[in-house]
């Protein structure tokens, strides 16, 4: 079962988020989760089998893979990349302000000190 293996990837991403002590690492984990979700959607869209959703004059015999998830996932990829870019830009700023990108050290700096 492919969807199950894909769900494992998502769970690994969440495991990483809950254990990583570094901002960059967290951003990596978000990327993993996102790729996992995209793959899960496509896995399920392809559950019945079928061909690529590009049709000629007649419908293919074996049916097609679900095109709707694919269209939605293109949106998700674009969203994910922009989120990553924004997070990394914030990362650079955080480093120059706190001198570190470790969550524990950043959050323990008292405000205004």
């Amino acid at each position: 079962m492919n969807p199950l293996l894909t769900f494992v990837v998502i769970l690994i991403g969440f495991y990483g988020l809950s254990t990583s002590s570094n901002i960059i690492k967290s951003v990596f984990c978000v990327t993993i989760i996102e790729s996992g979700v995209i793959l899960l959607f496509l896995n399920l869209g392809n559950l019945d089998g079928g061909v690529i959703p590009i049709i000629g004059d007649a419908l293919p015999v074996g049916g097609i893979a679900d095109p709707l998830p694919q269209a939605l996932m293109i949106t998700t990829i674009v969203i994910g990349s922009t989120v990553t870019a924004l997070a990394l830009m914030l990362c650079i700023k955080v480093f120059h302000h706190y001198g570190t990108v470790e969550w524990a050290e950043i959050l323990s700096r008292e405000s205004g000190k």
Partner: peptide, 17 residues
Amino acid sequence: AATGFADTGSRNLVTAI
């Protein structure tokens, strides 16, 4: 699959959506 091409004129149904 049934109406995508007729509705939108796109053979690539992903683009149609």
